[in-house]
Amino acid sequence: MKNVFFLSFLIIFALLSCRNDEAGVQKIDQIIRLYIDSAGQDMLNSNIQGGYTNIRMNDVYGLTDSAPVNFGTKKDQDTLSYIEYIAGARRIGIDSTGNAKTYESRIALSFTKRLTDSTTATINDTMTVQYNFTPEIFRVSKVWYNKVLQFTKVADEPNIVKIQK
């Protein structure tokens, strides 16, 4: 009798282990590449005269006034500099319909620009990122830069935001 119970248990366990969990996998697409250009000049290249020498990002919806956001400055295959923002800013819910939800993050960007050898200027901008969430996908859907819509998601395309100053 113990053997029948043990054998039944093993068969049920084996059947449950063979389930296909593919439907439960959510695709995540939230990496943003932010390029900033002014009159054909790569403003994120600190080695170029007039480029930004210091970049800071702060979470506007953060739990404290000072809530730095992690990012990286990288170069693409054409050696243009860009800010790679992956995640880190707090997301707040702004809409919900059934299984679909919309979230938003707001980030304050601060750039330092060298004017002369002894003078600098600080440029303050804001980036708002809207995300769509469904059980199948979590992705960037829109990006506003200084309250101007600069990016709308196109399926299967990278999230590249190009700002002209």
Rank of each mutant, 00 (worst) to 15 (best):
K2P: 02
K2Q: 11
N3E: 12
V4H: 04
L7W: 05
F9N: 14
L10F: 03
L10D: 00
L10H: 00
I11K: 05
F13V: 15
F13I: 15
L15Q: 08
C18D: 12
C18W: 04
R19D: 10
N20K: 09
D21C: 00
A23M: 14
G24P: 01
Q26S: 13
K27M: 06
K27R: 10
Q30L: 10
I32C: 08
Y35G: 05
Y35E: 03
D37W: 07
D37Y: 09
M43V: 02
M43I: 04
L44P: 08
N45K: 12
S46W: 01
S46K: 11
Q49V: 12
G50M: 11
G50H: 11
G50I: 07
Y52M: 07
T53I: 00
I55F: 00
R56M: 04
N58Q: 08
V60I: 08
Y61D: 10
T64A: 13
T64I: 15
T64K: 15
S66A: 05
V69R: 05
V69G: 05
N70K: 08
F71C: 11
G72V: 05
T73M: 14
K74A: 03
K74L: 14
Q77R: 08
D78P: 07
Y85C: 11
G88K: 01
R91F: 02
R91T: 01
G93R: 14
I94F: 14
I94C: 09
D95R: 13
S96V: 02
S96G: 08
S96H: 09
T97E: 09
T97V: 05
G98W: 08
N99L: 15
A100S: 14
A100C: 13
A100T: 15
Y103G: 07
Y103S: 10
Y103M: 10
E104L: 13
R106M: 09
R106P: 00
S110Y: 12
F111D: 14
F111P: 13
F111C: 13
K113E: 07
T116D: 13
T116W: 03
T116I: 12
S118Y: 08
T119W: 10
T120S: 15
T120P: 10
A121F: 05
T122S: 11
T122H: 06
I123P: 13
N124Q: 14
Q130G: 01
Q130H: 02
Y131L: 06
Y131G: 03
N132V: 10
P135Q: 10
I137C: 14
V143T: 05
W144K: 04
Y145P: 00
Y145M: 00
K147A: 08
L149A: 02
Q150L: 00
Q150F: 00
Q150K: 03
F151W: 04
T152D: 00
T152F: 02
A155L: 03
D156C: 03
P158S: 05
K162I: 08
I163D: 12
K165S: 02
